[in-house]
Design a protein around this nucleic acid. Sequence first.
DNA 1: GTAATAGTGTCTATAAGACACTATTGA
DNA 2: TCAATAGTGTCTTATAGACACTATTAC
Lengths: 245, 245
Amino acid sequence: MTKKQTEKAFLESYDIHDFDVPLTSVDMAIFTVRSEKLQVLLVKRAQHPALGQWALPGGFIDLKLDKTLMDTAKRKLYEKTGVRIPYLEQVETFGSQGRDPRGWSVTISYLALIPSDHITLGKDDSSEQVAWVPVDEAEDQYPLAFDHNRILEACHQRLRSKVQYTSLPVNLLPNEFTLTELQQTFELVLGNTVEKKSFRRRILDADILEATGNMKTGSNRPAKLYRVKPEGQSHFFTRNIEGPR
Amino acid sequence: MTKKQTEKAFLESYDIHDFDVPLTSVDMAIFTVRSEKLQVLLVKRAQHPALGQWALPGGFIDLKLDKTLMDTAKRKLYEKTGVRIPYLEQVETFGSQGRDPRGWSVTISYLALIPSDHITLGKDDSSEQVAWVPVDEAEDQYPLAFDHNRILEACHQRLRSKVQYTSLPVNLLPNEFTLTELQQTFELVLGNTVEKKSFRRRILDADILEATGNMKTGSNRPAKLYRVKPEGQSHFFTRNIEGPR
DNA sequence: GTAATAGTGTCTATAAGACACTATTGA
DNA sequence: TCAATAGTGTCTTATAGACACTATTAC
């Protein structure tokens, strides 16, 4: 190869298989709230390597189907849950010699938040076992395949820290919800209680919700129902929730 | 391949070249402060594709030399600047069909901060042209190779937003510096002025610096010189710098 | 009425911004 | 003494936490 070669000639003679490249995949931590717990979706691997072990859903980029990495992530999410437009955020890319027994590999991790209603688990044909597992259990009691425990922790950590200064938990709730339900969701993710008045002031002052006009009734005072305004899915507050002093 | 196959047999028969994988590289935005401007390191590409165009330094993972992605980033940084232990942070991974003419490719971007003293540009033998360019110029007036303008913007944006709530700019200064110099560095990165008293209160209350005992003299009152405590390289404040009201 | 949960009034605490002030040097 | 920059005192502002209080429903 000389420097005089044209770019066209260079590209024609270029073959990616001439070079050693790492295996590249996408893995994701899909979170939802079920039974008043923050849960994460796990799949039992139906292929080697790590056959039979629990893992985060993920897989290889389909160079034909996927135009971008985000497409790969969206495709995987849809295959596993039937959900098409969740909150989806890239977290961290893990790459090393030893993380996969097949050799040098890189995985781009994504964090997804979905409401627990209207999920159809395991839409795809992979016949893998799919399960929602409380995040704490997944972290402490499940030895996940590859370095997936570490990836899950990175995603969980990202979520926890962003909840301190963003409105992300709105993405874990159905279309209509009460402020109390929203507060409980924040508390679940944060892992501590938040003060009611402070919380409502913060949310309402941010102007990210609108009243639907409906009320949630029970055996007590009915609560106003709200929906998220479009810009409210990912609102940034100027200060953190601090939690109890 | 059957499911009864052992993992060992699977791995023995596995050949990465049987699959289509994307090209995978690492690119980095190396920032420093020179001539009272935030500058970024660019290299003029000495190979196809995009030969002769300015680009962010980067390159392929060396599957033999590098054990992790961070190793690739550190190696590239050392080759270009001679600096070994800077502030280094992974920013975002860009992957798509069209970002490189050679085909589907993925690049993991890193952000590095280095002090401008003791840099030896272009230590490696690539005989590429290497230059410091003010970030604003690089963004507005340099058509960088591939999608490097977008990558630079992502790294610059990450830096700007983290400066609001971290101590990162200490990594852009030499070992000893005055509070005024630190403040000026914050201002350069933030793109606005900050109030002197608030700034000093914030930094000193965080307890991330220690006085060296030396003073910087000039034709005026001497200023105390400080160095960063080890934990001060990446301190998180609980609130943002807000800037002028 | 009571139990239960929704929603508010208002005080304190924390850390930032504003800005005028004092301090210490060289020339 | 003056110019220049270092460094401080202290008031105001913004937003969070604490916590007691009122409001509205089903029964």
